[in-house]
Amino acid sequence: MSLREQLNYIFEIRGLLFEGLGISLIIAFVALIIGFLIGVILAMIKIAPKTNILIKLLDKFADLYIAVIRGTPMLVQLLIMYGVILVSFKSYDTNLVVPIVSFGINSGAYMAEIIRSGISSIDKGQMEAGRSLGLTWKTTMFSIIIPQAIKVVIPTIFNEIIILVKETSVVCYIALRVGGKQVRDLLGVAEKLGLAEPGCYMALIFSVAIMYLIVVLILTFVQKLIERRLSVNDRK
């Protein structure tokens, strides 16, 4: 097929590609929220003073969680979750929850480490100063330490977000259904169409690449905006 024909073909099926992108972004977005929540909770457990037995147990659990999740490939986790969730919840009709939960759990482990390292990068003196004024650990943490840690952590968090968005492309390995109807993510759509129209395969893959690139560029732009917003107390 000539280049022109290929471009025409892509233009014709653009709706399908955008649908696929929608599925990919939904998975990434919800997984991101789950991952962030898990990350904050795990980081808090790891950073809190180990005063009682419960927090010590939770701390051990957090260590195990992070070790297992970071120690196994994402795709393997996805396939395991596919089996576990489908069997235990019998949700054959709508299984979008499988990739969302898997990516959420996966991202949580990385987010936890990012947030923990961000918090521990803040000078110990800040906590000491807060405590010396009679503020509690919690108040100092939320009024002083976390606002400073957020600034430190933004670039790495966005790094993780970008990786997550792109990593969702591995869901094309599993069959997704919403309300009994089969759906596909962006790469899945391209693969399917590529089988039917082998002459356009490379054009489809290039289109997928460009779409991901645009999404990532938008994210990078958002990151720059936030960083500029947060840097007021460096200058002025």
């Binding site: 800040q126 100063a129 010396s132 004024l133 503020l135 509690t136 600034k151 107390n233």
Partner: peptide
Amino acid sequence: VNVTRQKMGMVFQHFNLFNNLTVMDNLTLA
């Protein structure tokens, strides 16, 4: 101890002013 510390001011070698707050907020936060 949290109550006691309110009555025990401490000044550090490295100042430890709260970097994310203005001078005014540093003074009024606690």
